[in-house]
Design a protein around this nucleic acid. Structure first.
Lengths: 346, 346
DNA sequence: TCATTTGGTACAATCGATTGCACAATCTAT
DNA sequence: ATAGATTGTGCAATCGATTGTACCAAATGA
């Protein structure tokens, strides 16, 4: 009998052969199955240790019909908010023995469909996702439950498919932001809004509207400016409202990059911030506290969101009840007041 | 015969049964094997399409002994540089049909060991990693090759284990940065340096020294200030050199956050940048272009690094040669000149 | 016409771990 | 002493896809 030292991986059969027992006994011994004698169990474990045996998760997952992998689908990983969320999820899930498989959609619907498919093929236990901007149909995620794959959302959720989710109270965040502007004496407040079919942007707009309504300020139609949440979106909006007869005195942006565009365009035109124009953003991107003037923004607590949604999944998979528990968490956002919105002379 | 619509996944056996052929024929038909008649091939494909058949990658990987997953080990995902690298890798690898499995070490050695083990168990095709700060031993990655798992490094590499890698030429980046300061009339240039046992910081210091030497500037001992690469490190350094009899006229920081600290402290003391003090950072963090004044910095091209290291892996796995090709790429960093270091009156 | 090639398909083993069931050996109770 | 329970282990099927080989049938060649 010749030992094969070139073997790439040790299997339970190798251990079984060496101990003259069957592979099934080895398998049970490693699982600490009480039906195996203590003596056999320890012998097996010792040998496994000695050879640094590592179970083949592919085989085990195939047999059990379930792996130990959670799929994550996000628009882009190199965006501060999303990488924070992933950091939070990883923290919780890796302790629980799960691996993360990450797919990016780049905000494209077809990439999202492909990602879902990929994760189904990989037989993940769950998919945790934040919808792409383009996503309107939900056909691609409808049938996950039949396939025994849990589905959870964070941030950009989907009302049509009932699932656990964690979101920020965007409406409240926007409300706080706008109320803060009003409290600081601003009245003619424009809103740079995101696409209406995305819940977060819709909610932010609603928060804006409520704050204005509750303070008796009429919102003119043109004050709601739908733009891309990018630098150019802000710049373009600034150009537009600069030409109005009655110019706004503040801007609430549904995203920090748009706010940055406003600030940048305002500087070029020598419009002072916050004296001539108050600005508030949303998301608390890392740059917001460092730019000049520092930008007031709404923090979304990405890491916490990741930890919570991961916890929701663990709770579900812990239960043996086939009918899953749906838990919807809405996190309270925090308004971080900085220089761009506080004007002593107002 | 009753159809089972509650089946979670369609298999080749389901298709075989329905067409009264064997599973192996289905398998070959789906692989477009020429030994299967055209007619059978199309029939199978059509049915597969109809049922939206998706192969079980677990089963296929198990059989083939190799999956389609690449493991990535990084210190932290929510750091701009690393998430950029991952973005770049994902871009290349997902097109090539690979999934990414990401593990974080949080700069801890034992977390790194565990991550390697996890990825071995998952039978990844390769591990692409950037070492944790704590890592000094290489026992945990030595035996990957025996296990038929490729190993590649980026940024923080490991000389002891020969493997393909991509790094930035930190020495050169620092040299360019300091040369740029000198060219702009600065002479008394202080260097805020990082920990000496980390190669990237050591290299940056060497670049600084070479630029100074080549331009005939004597570097005083106290000009090299070892500080943490954080905001406070910069602030503290500023306080320190402010009290010197002969104050420096510029600072080259091995990290952007330290540079930010310098700028922030300088503003408080009404020291003008770049007139009174030139500042250059390193890493091109997202905030650098938005702060006031915008910060000159050295870009490390994270995305490109990710794309290249992913490409190196693809090249290796494309070859059938068992002895792998080792390719070491050193990327030329790019100095992004902004307001903090260019002074017209100098 | 018989032998041989070629085309098309099926069988069965395999990857590694898991698990229902069978079975032998030992022990307990009557 | 025999029926029944208990303990410890092995056999073999299973998860789903892949692949070497065997096989039958039709086609070709001599």
């Amino acid at each position: 009998m010749q030992e094969n030292h070139s073997k790439t991986h040790i299997t339970i059969h190798d251990i079984a052969r060496e101990l003259n027992i069957s592979a099934s006994t080895v398998s049970r011994a490693l699982q600490n199955n009480p039906r195996i004698s203590i003596h056999t169990r320890t012998t097996v474990r010792e040998l496994a240790q000695k050879y640094n045996y590592q179970p083949n998760v592919l085989a085990s997952s195939l047999r059990k019909g379930q792996g130990n992998t959670v799929g994550v689908i996000i628009p882009r990983i190199n965006r501060n908010f999303f990488s924070n969320v992933i950091g939070g999820m990883e923290e919780v899930l890796s302790d629980a023995g799960y691996n993360l498989m990450i797919c990016q959609t780049y905000e494209k619907f077809n990439k999202e469909v492909a990602a879902v498919q990929t994760l189904i093929n990989a037989r993940v236990n769950a998919i945790i996702m934040s919808l792409s901007m383009e996503t309107r149909s939900t056909e691609h995620i409808r049938h996950l439950k039949n396939k025994n794959i849990r589905l959870l959302f964070f941030d950009r959720t989907c009302e049509q498919v009932p699932s656990s989710s964690v979101t920020t109270d965007d409406e409240q965040g926007a409300f706080l932001a706008v109320k803060h502007l009003i409290d600081n004496g601003y009245r003619k407040i424009v809103h740079i809004a995101g696409a209406d079919h995305i819940n977060i942007y819709r909610n932010r707009k609603n928060g804006y509207l409520r704050a204005m309504r509750e303070n008796g300020i009429d919102v003119r139609k043109e004050w709601i400016m739908h733009r891309g949440m990018v630098l150019e979106g802000g710049k373009e909006a600034f150009q537009t409202f600069s030409s109005w007869d009655e110019r706004p005195d503040a801007v609430f942006c549904a995203g920090d990059y748009a706010a940055l565009g406003i600030i940048s365009a305002a500087r070029q035109k020598s419009v002072r911030i916050p004296e001539d124009l108050g600005v508030v953003g949303f998301s608390n991107e890392p740059f917001t506290e460092f730019i000049e003037p520092s930008l007031t923004s709404v923090d979304q607590k990405g890491e916490e969101m990741g930890r919570i949604v991961a916890g929701q999944f663990l709770k579900q998979s812990g239960e043996n009840t086939p009918d899953e528990i749906i838990e919807t968490r809405i996190l309270k956002p925090e308004l971080l007041i900085r220089a761009s919105s506080v004007c002593k002379t107002k």
